[in-house]
Design a protein around this nucleic acid. Structure first.
Lengths: 199, 199
DNA sequence: ACCTGAACACCGTTCAAGT
DNA sequence: ACCTGAACACCGTTCAAGT
């Protein structure tokens, strides 16, 4: 139900209830139980649709590395498109269901780059967990900014640091470098993991 | 409040309510509002204590790489020690508050290994997000196994794959390699990110 | 076949009242 | 100063009853 996504995006995930959805659709709150066995089942359908978003246009060029980058960049953007919904994605096990298209694509590219299965499995899971962790942290922060100042907020750095310098000198040295563009920072991490892959 | 952690661990995070905690402590459900402004504030205190758990004994040996490994392995274990609580850690922004000790330690080791600040920042965030994503996924699965069969369950592989082989040949090739020991798989991902670090 | 709405067993939180 | 308990405004879900 696309209406449910709309409710979550405009009202926030916390305000999403059967009663709120019923009011939005102008029907009885209990009518949804004809289409979904439970609120959890409805939520799971929403999460799957977010993860699958845009996965039909995954590129298959002559550069495996670029294709993998595109895959995970797209996943990150899909998650960030619904910041208040994104944190709930962790409720679903990664690597199954909605991830099939994405993981099959990524593993195929790793094979094509000449990587053996064991390495491919590790690199794939590292990429996936890194992407989920990074995007969901960013989404959470973006969601807070949205509810604080309405539309048009940018959320700030994905992980800002404000430690007392005298106690944590090394941390404070690094802090300025955490304030850069979030997507660039994300892609740098991807490249770090993909470093050994032939370009 | 350590009693709250006990309630979460035995009853599951879903059953944690002010009323349930009150029943456990044999006091009125509203008595907690003298010590915590809100249920959220109480939960945040719990999450912080989990992240900080054991961070006092972070090693500082002559091998920066091993020290960083120990840091993130310890973080993973702290999260997995409270599997039903762990997913809620994402509600807090990483990189602040409870993470100070851990991130300061990790960044100090990266410096000591001769890494420049920009690289150190990226490597640190990559490690953190990878660890959070990996451990929280594993914790979620472990929590499900626990509530399904009581104590003594192992939770199975952190990301099992059961895709139709005819549609996803590459994925099916890799699936067997995802079923190995979860901690070994986690450490392999860490090493992947730390590959360039001098040993 | 599908929707309705009353009802049940819960929530978090507030606040006047007690000691 | 701290705890109590009634009360308020919510939840998800069920089920007999309507069309």
């Amino acid at each position: 139900m696309a209406a449910a996504i709309q409710v979550v995006d405009t009202q926030g995930a916390g305000a999403f209830s059967m009663r709120a959805l019923g009011a939005f659709l102008e029907c009885d709150p209990t009518a949804m139980y004809r289409h979904f066995r439970t609120k959890n089942a409805l939520l799971d359908a929403l999460l799957d649709s977010v993860v699958r978003e845009g996965s039909a246009e995954l590129p298959q060029s002559d550069d495996p590395r670029a294709d993998i980058r595109a895959n995970f960049r797209q996943l990150r953007r899909s998650l960030l498109a619904h910041p208040t919904l994104a944190p709930l994605v962790l409720r679903r096990p990664p690597g199954v269901g909605a991830y099939w298209e994405r993981s099959d694509h990524a593993v195929a590219q790793l094979h094509r780059a000449g990587m053996d299965p064991v390495d491919a499995a590790n690199v794939y899971q590292t990429l996936l967990f890194y992407t989920l962790g990074h995007a969901l942290s960013e989404a959470r922060q973006l969601a807070r900014a949205l509810e604080r100042e309405g539309a048009g907020a940018d959320g700030g750095p994905v992980a800002s640091v404000d430690a007392p310098p005298e106690r944590h000198p090394d941390l404070s040295d690094v802090a300025p470098h955490l304030r850069d563009d979030n997507e660039a920072q994300f892609l740098a991490g991807l490249d770090l993991i993909l470093r050994d892959l032939p370009r």
